[in-house]
Nucleic acid binder design. Structure first.
Length: 261
DNA sequence: ATGGTAGCGCTGCTA
């Protein structure tokens, strides 16, 4: 099974690129973030015509997550279990069962600046994700949490650690919140296959950062050990960050071998 | 160079 994740930064703008990419990357499951659209605007038919079922969770201008699958899409849950109807809910989490795995598409809050209320909300949100795993998932089972974590797990995941001192995405508290997820029983799938530094998934649009190789690796596929043991290949598709109207993120793909006898 | 670009949507917010 080929599983992928891509922050598309507006699915309305990026739909032609996503359609093109589906046809050459052929993922079985694709998790999308930052669709920036309401459920009513989601292009269900465009994806169906390419052979994908889809589930979307979006409120409009910001956020928005989706799961596309051509290996089944069952038991869709939008948001965290027990999320209250009356609270201000941002569309950052959706789960479905695809090809025998429980897959989630996540868009972790950015945090804006260390110590801000948005930063505290980011840490709280990550705690909520940890609680979701504890309450609803089995670390011995087949679980994949895919998306834009807005955290660079290690200093080798940023272009110049000195430039990020005191910044979000690299703080101890954020990395500890991520470590709480891996401690539960998840593995950074990309790192199972690649150990080099400076392999990025996001580059700021500004100042020509992509062409200057100034990026961060913040898009992750976290899988339970039973799935990690089946990883045969992983790639950040930098080609998809080039060309006309690219997202500021590249897609991440991971191949999992079929279950043996 | 406390800059720069992109998206949403129409003014400034978010990233």
């Amino acid at each position: 099974m080929r599983i992928a994740t891509w922050n598309v930064n507006s699915l309305k703008v990026r739909l032609p690129r996503v359609e093109e990419w589906l046809q050459y990357a052929h993922p079985d499951v694709l998790c999308l973030q930052e669709t920036k659209m309401a459920d009513g605007a989601f292009p269900t038919m465009a994806f169906a015509s390419l052979g994908y079922e889809a589930a979307h969770h979006g409120n409009g201008r910001w956020n928005g997550v989706a799961i596309l699958s051509r290996v089944g899409l069952e038991d869709v849950v939008a948001g965290f279990e027990g999320e209250q109807e009356d609270e201000i809910v941002e569309s950052r989490f959706i789960s479905a069962t695809c090809g025998g795995a429980r897959v989630s598409s996540v868009y972790v809050p950015n945090g804006r600046s260390v110590g801000s209320e948005h930063y505290e909300a980011k840490l709280e949100w990550l705690g909520r994700l940890r609680e979701h795993l504890q309450a609803s998932c089995d670390p011995q089972g087949r679980v994949a949490i895919c998306g834009d974590f807005n955290i660079a797990p290690e200093d080798r995941d940023v272009y110049d650690p000195a430039k990020f001192v005191g910044a979000t995405h690299v703080s101890d508290a954020e990395r500890k919140a991520l470590a709480a997820l891996t401690d539960w029983g998840l593995v950074d799938a990309f790192r199972e296959r690649h150990q080099e530094d400076k392999l990025f998934s996001w580059w700021d649009y500004r100042a020509g950062d992509f062409h200057e190789h100034r990026g961060m690796r913040i898009d992750l596929i976290l899988v339970t050990r039973v799935l990690a043991d089946r990883i045969t290949w992983a790639l950040i598709d930098r080609f998809a960050r080039k060309g006309k109207l690219p997202s500021d993120h590249a897609p991440l793909l991971v191949d999992l071998a079929d279950e043996g006898p």
